[in-house]
Nucleic acid binder design. Structure first.
Length: 824
RNA sequence: GGGGCGGUGGCGGAAUUGGCAGACGCAGGGGACUUAAAAUCCCCCGGUUUAUCCGUGUGGGUUCGACUCCCACCCGCCCUACCA
């Protein structure tokens, strides 16, 4: 046994032994309570980043803590292995995406293993394996057969650089840039496959079964974007219905114009010959507008008059129909009523084009004049100029929170003009990608029979290996000479395969299920595994997935539940997000900035345990912060001190008589620490886990000076210390436990210690003496002291005396076991 | 514009949920050991006019007592955005 801590020697040794012994392999055990701890799987980009360590190693520590608490813990790992970068690498370096991906996986698996995490590699799942994507395809067919997948021609966001369509979630910012390459996105009309996630919008807004961060809940609510109001049908003068959605049906009498989105199908019909040229030009320009970068500040509303008119159904008023690009085809019905007196945008538009402004909501004590008002009025008030509903009180609040609006909707309903309506921002999930490296969409098109799914016994539809890497903009599958040629499952005649592949979010929507039985060939998972392990108890990962993966996977679970494949309301009960580790310069780490901190050299120099512990200690886990090579030294020193205490200091002595008080105090400290550490692991407060262990070590070393080594108290402290340390620093804990103390292998199979409540009790405490709330004295007093005694001690205390002497004591507050505050 | 999170020493961060502000660590200063350095160990470390002092972004409030609760505001980060 060396007397010096050498992580480079002990860490690989234990990793090898743990793996040989299958120490972390999880099996169904009905006698134990299960715990499914899931951490987001990496994309095999090539190298593990310190951010992966930050996300995964504290998650590992917590999974280990749960295991020691007696839970049967499943903590799996895999690779989200389909996706664009593999294809980009293929084009750039002429290497097959499969080869690139598998090389990366092999390398990253090795890196992951250096964490010393309790990943169960027997359950590894890789989404680009045929045995995996066979089931991704199968799920698609399930959704298709239950009416949740459909095909439609739609204007889609298209990245001209990546040559692919993008989901709404992958288009970022005002400039509408591609999430991956920052190229401005353009619109393109294509036949695409969609999932009906909007059918689940309402249910997705129910977070009552979830313990998720408020931030993520807020982001999802925002993303789903539910609005309550009314849908009202206007008609053009020619009698064509024009449905609008409004959250303010109470302002219907103030509608002085209509606006259609430029892409609205009715625009052509309503436009008069006189205005056709102008409207056509505007439409063209609007289309281009989405293609060019829009200046951020330019919010000026533009539009053109179509020459057509509509009839306001509430008062038969004839109002002009305009088209303008501030109305979006993708939200509501793509048509709005313009109420300039009570809407910011409508107001600006009306003033610019000199349209009538009629106020119909009036707060007390105000009288608006449509001609002269300088800004719209958005607030509450009484309805005026509103026919039979004049005088209705409109309060703050939307939909059913607003009785006045509800009264209006009821009236509209009675008259057959409109009805209660709900609108969502969320759109159906577009899953088609014109790419090679993804799971093929298992559909076949026949001239005679239309679209049909590939029969289940023919799955998986395999990707062809012999493809050409040309940046053509078309899917390599489409260009392949014969891959798409097949026969119709219905009539047996010649047919063609769908050449698009699926969005990789489809693969990651169910990976937590594949871990349950990764090799299984009869179904995506074994039922008994599902019944035992699901749902996921704790899910950890980055907040960047809040509106994509985390909505998709909830939808997926709910859709499969309705089909009869999954069970329960939600797939992941508890979610926790780690923050982000920044570069030492406080910038986000990126290859282009060249400030990426690679974990491997750190592991090489300080050991995995030190890196793990520093990532736990140096930050509030949910916040993150800049990497600091300076600060890691504190943790490195601490681990060396731990080693020194257990290996050197504690092996000497034992012949000195140790005062009983030292033992008692040390026992108290260890049990108080145990209390805190248990709570902090539970709450994901990893920084205070480590600081508590540092404090305890400091006290242990003080006690060693007093001759505590050799006592029963010391044995207990040694034992408990290593158990508490084991989740955070699994290697050194194992070495000291098994190798130095000679206790039974493995520490990671030991139970978590129990707090001895009695040992945590103190005999004395520090009584705080305040005068008028200011600290004046601290006095050691016995624990069970009465309020009266405490009061007397405080009044007579040296520190308080000068302030109390010539003053009148008005009141004395006693907080038992804590303080006395004298009010003078 | 809307939403979320946050603001505590030179730095990372604690604070039993309304009761000793600054735990633990980094950096810094001093000392011990050493021929010397590293390592290690010990001491100091919010400010100042050194005292009935000031101090948790700012200003108010509630309270015997506020980093913690309430109101108003300022700043930073993240998400989202012509949402009808």
């Amino acid at each position: 046994m060396t007397d010096e801590y050498r992580p480079q020697e002990i860490e690989p040794k234990w990793q090898k032994k743990w793996e040989e012994d299958g120490l972390y392999h999880a099996e169904i055990d009905p006698s134990k309570e299960k715990f499914y701890a899931l951490t987001m799987l990496p994309y095999p980009s090539g190298d593990l980043h310190i951010g992966h360590w930050y996300a995964m190693t504290p998650s590992d520590a917590r999974a280990r803590f749960k295991r020691m608490q007696g839970k049967n813990v499943l903590f799996p790992m895999g690779f989200d292995a389909f996706g664009l970068p593999a294809e980009n690498a293929a084009i750039q370096r002429n290497i097959h995406p499969k080869e690139w991906t598998y090389d990366n996986i092999e390398h990253m698996r090795k890196q992951l293993k250096s964490m010393g995490a309790m990943f169960d590699w027997d359950r590894e799942a890789i989404s680009c394996e045929p045995s995996y994507y066979r089931w991704t395809e199968w799920f698609f067919i399930q959704l298709y057969e239950h009416g949740l997948a459909y095909r439609k021609r739609a204007p889609v966001d298209w990245c001209p650089s990546c040559n692919t369509t993008l989901a709404r979630e992958q288009v970022v910012g005002e400039d509408r840039l591609c999430e991956r390459c920052d190229t401005p996105v353009i619109k393109k009309e294509l036949e695409q496959w969609f999932f009906r996630i909007t059918d689940y919008a309402e249910e997705l807004l129910d977070f009552s079964h979830l313990d998720w961060p408020t931030q993520v809940v807020a982001m999802q609510k925002n993303w789903i974007g539910r609005s309550e109001g009314a849908s009202v049908v206007f008609h053009t003068e020619e009698g064509d219905p024009m449905e609008v959605f409004t959250t303010r049906p109470d302002t219907l009498w103030g509608a002085t114009f209509m606006v259609l989105a430029p892409e609205h199908p009715l625009v052509d019909k309503v436009t008069t010959e006189e205005h056709r040229e102008e409207v056509e030009a505007y439409k063209k320009q609007a289309e281009r507008q989405t293609q060019i970068e829009r200046a951020a500040a330019d919010k000026e509303k533009t539009g053109v008059f179509t020459g057509g008119y509509a009839i306001n159904p509430v008062n038969e008023k004839r109002i002009p129909v305009w088209t303008a690009d501030y109305v979006m085809m993708g939200y509501g019905t793509g048509a709005i009523m313009g109420v300039p007196a009570h809407d910011e945008r409508d107001f600006n538009f009306a003033r610019r084009y000199d349209l009538e402004v009629i106020p119909v909501i009036q707060p007390e004590g105000e009288e608006f004049d449509g001609e002269t008002m300088e800004e719209p009025y958005i607030g509450p008030g009484l309805m005026i100029n509103s026919g039979p509903l004049t005088g209705t009180l409109i309060t703050e609040g939307e939909g059913h929170d607003n009785p006045g609006i509800m009264a209006v909707i009821e009236w509209l309903d009675e008259k057959g003009i409109g009805e209660k309506g709900v609108s969502y921002k969320i759109q159906d999930w577009l899953i088609s990608r014109q790419r090679y490296w993804g799971a093929p969409i298992p559909m076949v098109y026949c001239q005679k029979c239309g679209w049909n799914p590939v029969p289940e016994d023919e799955l998986p539809v395999l990707l062809p290996e012999d493809v050409k890497w040309l940046p053509t903009g078309e899917s390599p599958l489409k260009l392949h000479p014969n891959w798409k040629k097949t026969t119709c499952p219905e009539c047996g005649g010649p047919a063609e395969r769908e050449t698009d592949t699926m969005d990789t979010f489809m693969c990651s929507s169910w990976y937590h299920l594949r871990y349950l039985s990764p090799g299984y060939e009869k179904a995506p998972f074994k039922q008994e595994e599902y019944d035992y392990w699901m749902p996921v108890d704790t899910y950890t990962g980055g907040v960047e997935h809040a509106t994509m993966h985390l909505i998709y996977t909830r939808f997926f679970h709910k859709a499969l539940r309705d089909i009869g494949i999954t069970k329960g309301p939600e797939p992941m009960l508890q979610l926790r997000n780690q923050g982000q580790i920044l570069a030492p310069d406080r910038q986000r780490m990126s290859k282009s900035r060249g400030n990426v901190v690679p974990p491997d050299p750190l592991v090489e120099e300080y050991g995995a345990d030190a890196v793990r512990c520093y990532l736990m200690f140096g930050y509030r886990w949910s916040e993150g912060g800049p990497w600091s090579e300076e600060n890691i030294q504190g943790v490195v020193r601490w681990l060396h001190r731990v080693w020194d205490t257990f290996v050197n200091k504690a092996r000497e002595g034992g012949d000195v008589d140790c005062p009983e008080k030292v033992c008692r105090d040390l026992r108290r400290k260890v049990h108080v620490t145990l209390q805190q550490v248990s709570e902090d692991y539970q709450r994901f407060e990893f920084n205070t886990v480590i600081s508590a262990l540092m404090e305890l070590l400091n006290e242990m070393n003080d006690a060693v000076q007093e001759g505590v080594v050799g006592t029963a108290a010391w044995s207990e402290v040694e034992d408990y210390y290593l158990r508490m340390l084991a989740p955070a620093a699994p290697h050194i804990a194992e070495e000291l436990w098994t190798g130095v103390l000679g206790k039974p292998y493995s520490i990671h199979e030991q139970p978590w210690p129990e707090v001895d409540e009695e040992a945590t009790q103190k005999e004395t405490f520090t009584l705080i003496v305040q005068v008028n709330g200011k600290l004046r004295d601290r006095i050691q007093v016995p624990v069970g002291i009465s309020d009266q005694e405490a009061k007397e001690i405080a009044l007579e205390s040296e520190g308080a005396a000068p302030y109390v002497e010539d003053a009148e004591v008005r009141k004395v507050i006693v907080v038992p076991g804590r303080l006395v505050n004298i009010v003078v």
